[in-house]
Simulated assay, not measured.
Amino acid sequence: MDSTVDMMTTTQDSYGYDDSTPTAGDYEDYFDLMCDRASVRAFRARYEPPLFWTITLVGGLGNLTVVWIYLHFRQRLKTMTDVYLLNLAVADLLFLVTLPFWASEASHGWSFGPGLCKLTSALYKVNLFSSVLLLTCISADRYVAIVQTTKAQNSKRERLRCSKLVCGAVWLLATLLAAPEFIFATSKPDAEGEFCRMVFYENVGNRTKILVLALQVSMGFCLPFLIMTFCYSVIVRTLLRTRNFEKHKAMRVILAVVVVFVVSQLPYNGVLVMEAAQATNATNELQCEEKKRFDVAGQVLKGLAYTHACLNPFLYAFVGVRFRRDVLRLLRVYRCLPRGMLGKPGKQRASVMSDTDTTQALSL
C-alpha cells in the first residue's frame, strides 16, 4: 500500500480535477500507470491552443467593442438591458483573459506557479458563472418588459436601480460559487510536466468533486436554462398575439439565443454529469480506450462551450440597428470610415434594438 501511495501522481482529466484519495486514489493511479494517456495529451496540445487563441481574439474584439460603445455613449446605460449587457461583456472579457494560460498549459504544462493557478482557476469560474447568470437576468428583464409592458414602463427608474443591485448580487454569488477553486486549485507535477488542477485529498475526496461538479451543472446550466426557457416561451407566445411586422425578426433573435446556448452548453454539461457519475464509482469501470475517448470528447465539447463567450456580443448587441449605428459613428469619429458610410439621418424602421423599452428587451 505504501509503495502504491509513493507512486501517486496527479490524476488528470479534461476538466481539471485530481480525484486521488486514500480509497479511490490508489486504484486511479494504478489505472493511470496501466493506461497511457499520452495520445490524449497530444490531442489536447494540438486542439486547445489554436481554438482558445481564436476565441480570445474574436471574443476580445467583440466584447471590447461593446464596452467601448457604452463608455463612449454613457447615455445608453438607462435600461436594465444595457446594464446587464455591459456587465456581460466585462464578464466575458475576464473569462477570455484566462484562456491563454490554459492554451499555454495544453502546450507546455503549467509554468506560472501555484498562486497564479489558484487565481486563474477562480477567475475563470467567477466569470463563467457570472456570464451565465447575467444571461438569465437578461431573459427575465425581457420577460418583464414584453409580457408585463405597463408595469415595466411605469417602473423604469426602479428597475434601473434594481439592475445595479442585481449585478452586484450576481458577481457576489459567482464569487461564492468559485470558492472551491480558491481552496483546491493548485499546480501539481506528474510524469509529463506540471499541471494546474483541482486537487482533492483524503477527507474531502470524491464527495467534494461531485459537489463541485453538481454546482457547476446546476447553477451554470440547469437553473439558467429553465428560467430562460420559461421566459422566452412566454415572450414568444405574447409576440404571436401581436400584430407587428417586427415580431418575426424578434422571434428569430430569441430562437438564435436559445439554440446557441443549448448547443454550446448542453453537451459539455452532459459530460460533466457523466464525470460526476464516474466519481461515485471508486472502481472506475471505464476501460483504458473508453477513458481516453471520453477525455478527448470532453476536450472537444469544452472548447465548444467556451465559444459562447465570443458569440455573446453578436447575439445580444450587434443584431440591433442602434448598436450597429453607434459602431459606425465611433468609427467615423476616429476617422476609420468615410463620412458617407454612416448613412443618411432620418426615420428608421423600428427594430429589435430600437429605443423603446420593450423592443430593447428583445435583443439588447
Score class of each variant (00 low, 15 high):
Val5Phe: 02
Met7Asp: 14
Met7Cys: 13
Thr10His: 00
Thr11Ala: 13
Asp13Gly: 05
Asp13His: 07
Asp18Thr: 08
Thr21Trp: 00
Pro22Gly: 02
Asp26Ala: 11
Tyr27Asn: 07
Phe31Asn: 08
Leu33Phe: 14
Asp36Gln: 15
Arg37Ile: 01
Ser39Glu: 15
Phe43Met: 10
Arg44Gly: 06
Arg46Gly: 00
Glu48Gln: 12
Pro49Arg: 12
Trp53Val: 08
Ile55Ser: 03
Ile55Cys: 04
Gly59Pro: 02
Gly62Cys: 01
Met80Ile: 00
Thr81Gly: 07
Asp82Ile: 05
Asp82Ser: 14
Val83Asp: 02
Leu88Phe: 02
Asp92Ile: 00
Val97Trp: 01
Phe101Gly: 01
Phe112Tyr: 15
Pro114Asp: 11
Thr120His: 01
Ala122Ser: 14
Ala122Phe: 06
Lys125Asp: 01
Leu128Asp: 04
Leu134Met: 12
Leu135Ser: 08
Cys137Glu: 05
Cys137His: 02
Asp141Ser: 15
Asp141Cys: 13
Asp141Gly: 14
Ile146Val: 15
Ile146Cys: 13
Thr149Trp: 00
Lys151Gln: 04
Ala152Phe: 01
Asn154Thr: 12
Asn154Trp: 05
Asn154Leu: 13
Arg157Val: 01
Glu158Pro: 03
Arg159His: 06
Ala169Asn: 08
Ala169Ser: 14
Ala174Tyr: 04
Pro180Glu: 04
Phe184Pro: 03
Thr186Cys: 12
Thr186Pro: 00
Asp190Phe: 07
Met198Gln: 09
Gly205Met: 11
Gly205Leu: 09
Thr208Asn: 11
Val212Asn: 04
Ala214Val: 03
Leu215His: 06
Pro224Phe: 04
Cys231Tyr: 05
Ile235Trp: 01
Leu239Phe: 07
Leu239Val: 09
Arg241Met: 09
Arg243Val: 06
Asn244Glu: 07
Glu246Leu: 10
Lys249Met: 12
Lys249Thr: 15
Val253Gln: 06
Ile254Arg: 04
Val257Glu: 10
Val257Met: 14
Gln265Ser: 12
Val271Ser: 07
Ala276Phe: 06
Ala279Asn: 07
Thr283Asn: 13
Leu286Glu: 08
Glu289Thr: 11
Lys292Thr: 00
Phe294Ile: 09
Gly298Val: 00
Lys302Ala: 11
Ala305Val: 06
Thr307Lys: 07
Cys310Asn: 09
Cys310Ala: 14
Phe314Trp: 12
Leu315Gly: 08
Tyr316Phe: 07
Tyr316His: 11
Ala317Asn: 07
Val321Tyr: 08
Val327Arg: 10
Val327Gln: 09
Arg335His: 14
Arg335Ile: 05
Leu337Gln: 13
Pro338Thr: 08
Arg339Leu: 11
Arg339Gly: 08
Gly343Phe: 10
Lys347Val: 13
Val352Phe: 03
Val352Lys: 04
Thr358Phe: 11
Ser363Val: 02
Ser363Gln: 09
